[in-house]
Design a protein around this nucleic acid. Structure first.
Length: 380
RNA sequence: GUGGGUAUAGCGUAGCUGGUUAACGCGCCAGAUUGUGGUUCUGGAGACCGAGGGUUCGAAUCCCUCUACCCACC
């Protein structure tokens, strides 16, 4: 059950009730591809920084340790001990982003494992079966992430196929949910809208998938090379054709600024590798922009990563110490960086929800965007 | 004191049978990264090659002197 509690312009704040807990939106899902956040961040750490949803990946878990194994262990939630909601990505993006030698047909996609090169076939049914084994709260439809700059003709055909695949996903998941030994018989399904930057294809596709009455809808194939303006334009011209009473998920996005701008256009769900990957690479998010801890100027900086942050890392550790750990390749450095960055994103979402509730989101958004720009002044 | 060796960017090294803008690693600096192939990728700055003199069209490379450091011996 998804219910919008507050509206502020096009921005909205809602609650989504799931069998694994309530999700307050707008929400940033923390990416834990293989059932763990990279950087040695444990599920107990996630609880402490108020993570709401963990995002896991169908493709990766299928390869290792294998979705049958995960099912035997009681599903990804029991297996990992993360007891909150989990969203599983369908594998569609991985086929597009990392599998080489892929061959796309009506039945599905044949491609090679990035681990050992063996041939794998995945179609809508396979993706749903794997996600059912994983027992996530929300399953994503199996789609083709149409590359940016694809021709109009190719995009139109691909999107039409993604629609056919979506119907197959719905049918297969209904079957799986009704089986005796299903890990989560209440598994929900989100459909994915594609069409790159062709607004008319996006709109047509949105109307078609809206008829399927799914649990939520996502905008896919964005933040893959187009400009921010193009991305915002697509959101503005596509969101109106998707059901207003269903959550909207912008896949793979993004920077704090991207999130603020997208919330302003009605987006509820986000996920992005930035906070974790950038953390591993030494970049910390602060209320005054991103800083690179590897820079020498932090060598004896006693301040926390972000002076306006109240996360467990900022309450205790200095920039200088974390820098030292990163320089020395000590794992604790990664863990502290990633934990802070995720906490920063989670806090941002919490503040966004509060601002929407209080009807001052636009003002808040502008202030934040200004703050992010003056990074060099304050952090020097 | 004697013999031998070494001196090249912040550090560690390559180049040293003489030939255009002296190379590499680390460090430093800056960018990149958007449904994650777990410490990534791309760039940049920085050295009058210990000091002085000589040979030569031309010297980091050869010769001499000095200085510093290292090793061995007395």
């Amino acid at each position: 059950m998804y219910k919008v509690l507050y509206r502020d312009g096009s921005a909205k704040s809602a609650v989504m009730e799931t069998v694994h807990g309530t999700i307050k939106t707008p929400v940033f899902m923390n990416v834990g591809t293989i059932g763990a956040i990279k950087g040695a961040v444990a599920p107990t750490d996630l609880k402490e920084i108020k993570t709401q949803v963990m995002l896991c990946n169908t493709y990766h878990l299928h390869l290792r340790p294998g979705d049958e194994i995960v099912k035997k262990m009681g599903g990804i939630r029991k297996f990992s001990t993360w007891d909150g909601p989990v969203l599983t990505d369908s594998g569609g993006f991985q086929v597009f982003s990392l599998a080489k030698l892929r061959q796309i047909k009506e039945e599905g996609v044949t491609f090679r494992s990035h681990i050992d090169g063996h041939k794998i076939f995945m179609g809508p049914e396979e993706s749903m079966q794997i996600q059912s084994h994983l027992g996530s709260t929300i399953a994503m439809a199996f789609d083709e992430c149409v590359p940016y700059n694809s021709s109009y003709e190719y995009t139109k055909n691909s999107v039409a196929r993604t629609t056919r695949w979506l119907r197959r996903c719905r049918k297969e998941l209904d079957r799986l949910n009704s089986l005796e030994d299903t890990v989560n018989p209440h598994q929900m399904l989100f459909g994915i809208n594609q069409g790159t930057t062709y607004n008319d294809i996006r709109a047509e596709h949105a109307k078609e998938i809206a008829e399927l009455d799914l649990d939520g809808y996502a905008l896919g194939g964005l933040a893959v090379g187009e400009s921010h303006e193009q991305m915002y334009d697509v959101i503005e011209h596509t969101a109106p054709y998707l059901p207003a009473d269903k959550p909207l998920y912008l896949m793979g996005v993004g920077t704090p600024e991207n999130i603020l701008e997208s919330v302003a256009r009605g987006v509820d769900f986000f996920d992005c590798v930035y906070p974790s990957r950038n953390g591993r690479h030494g970049h910390a998010y602060t209320s005054h922009g991103k800083i690179n801890l590897l820079n020498k100027r932090f060598e004896t900086d006693e301040r926390p990563l972000d002076e306006n942050c109240n996360c467990p890392v900022c309450r205790r550790y200095s920039r200088a110490y974390i820098r030292h750990l990163l320089k020395a390749n000590e794992m604790l450095g990664l863990r502290l960086m990633v934990t802070h960055n995720l906490a920063f994103y989670n806090n941002l979402m919490s503040e966004i929800r509060k601002a929407i509730k209080e009807g001052r989101f636009d003002e808040y958004r502008k202030q934040k965007e200004e703050d992010f720009k003056i990074e060099s002044e304050v952090n020097k």
